[in-house]
Design a protein around this nucleic acid. Sequence first.
DNA 1: TTTAATCTTGACAAATTTACTCGGATATAT
DNA 2: ATATATCCGAGTAAATTTGTCAAGATTAAA
Lengths: 149, 149
Amino acid sequence: MKLSTKGRYGLKAMFDLALNDGSGPVSLTAISERQGISIHYLEQLVSPLRKAGLLKSVRGAQGGYLLAKLPAEISVREILELLEGPLAPAACVTDEKNSCSHSDLCVSRMIYDRIYASINEVVDNISLQDMLDEQYRNLQDSIPDMNNK
Amino acid sequence: MKLSTKGRYGLKAMFDLALNDGSGPVSLTAISERQGISIHYLEQLVSPLRKAGLLKSVRGAQGGYLLAKLPAEISVREILELLEGPLAPAACVTDEKNSCSHSDLCVSRMIYDRIYASINEVVDNISLQDMLDEQYRNLQDSIPDMNNK
DNA sequence: TTTAATCTTGACAAATTTACTCGGATATAT
DNA sequence: ATATATCCGAGTAAATTTGTCAAGATTAAA
């Protein structure tokens, strides 16, 4: 029941891009150094995100990647789902073909449906902007002087 | 983000045992035939469930397995967690050692925490008895005559 | 125009995990 | 005894994950 590195690294990369939103294209080299992910592997992650319209790319020297929308308009669900597929605990929940013939009567299936819904409820309601806000709060809390008199 | 067959088959096996609760030991052979899971594989699943005290075993001829508690006292969480480990989307959520050094400041971690909590909220509150109840409702609904005048 | 940086694609491969199978030992009802 | 079970540890083939690598296309800047 773990996310793969694809999802986790992809989310980190998108968050990195959100942090640098508005400062021009960000190269994979820069993301690679900040986040500790190999450039070649990053390329794999970024490709589907671009094709899905979450990212824009700028080729050539000084090129890189940019968010294609505002951070508030990109949800964690979009990102994770693109890289991981549906965040469902079992394939039968999202399979077109009801591979499980007794799907209507399957009690396990009901459980997986509920887990799926609850995961989506969380990730649907967190945007990159929410992550930025959270990051900002964390940074404030970590500076003791801010609470001094 | 999928459960493995260990968790899924294990849950099916436990549900099968719940359906037959009170009718003496159920052999793995019987479960195997009903659920379509190989006996040898079932042995692997059942072993940790027994060691954790969810199941009792009766060895020898006419032996088999029994629920060690009432269906209402066994949650889906216990079952899945025993077979899958913590139902967390990333290891950092449950790792003793904070493998992720910036755990306090990590915004991704916050997301994984929330997903973990929401999954547990679901599986904590479904017991084998709830599954039996659901199964009963499903069976009623599938009998059209029951709603005839 | 040339150079350098970067994106883009696809193939490939090591490492890990999953999903089992198999053999044999032990226990017990009949 | 014998058939029927659980128990236990190894072993293994397939799939997935987690990358690496090479070659080419595209573009910005000198």
